[in-house]
């Protein structure tokens, strides 16, 4: 079944909102990149906290949504749209490469490992929470 066009429009809007939340989180955490030195500041003594928070929260959200029984459209909007816009992989990869190239190799590897472990844990906790509040998919 193909979702109607307006579902995709909502997914795109949700992706935009997710991006805005990520921008706000990254901008307002200690890893704040200032305009003009967008990637340079965060590799000197700072940890890319904002991206980690965005990815972990998005993983929790999509785990929760997967365990709740919203319609297929709501699932697309929340998981593919908002969660996809909030989370990111490109910045994670570039931050780790930047850390590595500035000699912070432990931080580069830790950034990847912590993100993956926290993301999987958050998705599992979200899914568990979704099921345990008793409205999970009923066996049919």
């Amino acid at each position: 079944m193909t979702p109607p066009w307006w579902t995709w429009a909502l997914v795109v809007v949700a992706g935009s909102v997710g991006s805005l939340v990520r921008y706000a989180v990254v901008s307002l955490t200690p890893s704040t990149p200032r305009p003009g030195s967008f990637w340079s500041r965060r590799v000197h003594g700072v940890w890319p906290t904002g991206v980690l928070v965005a990815n972990t929260v998005a993983s929790f959200l999509v785990g929760l949504v997967a365990a709740l029984p919203p319609t297929a459209a709501a699932r697309l909007v929340l998981a593919v749209g908002f969660g996809g816009g909030l989370s990111t992989l490109s910045t994670l990869a570039v931050d780790s490469v930047s850390l590595w190239r500035h000699g912070r190799r432990g931080a580069a590897v830790a950034n990847l490992l912590v993100t993956v472990v926290a993301g999987l844990a958050a998705a599992l906790i979200g899914a568990w929470l979704g099921r345990s509040i008793g409205v999970g998919p009923q066996p049919s």
Binding site: G15, S90, L92
Partner: peptide, 18 residues
């Protein structure tokens, strides 16, 4: 932050495991 940040995704990877 806008185009490439939202083009790529991490949550879809987490989601696939649950």
């Amino acid at each position: 932050t806008g185009i490439l940040g939202s083009f790529t995704t991490f949550s879809a990877l987490s989601l696939a495991l649950v």
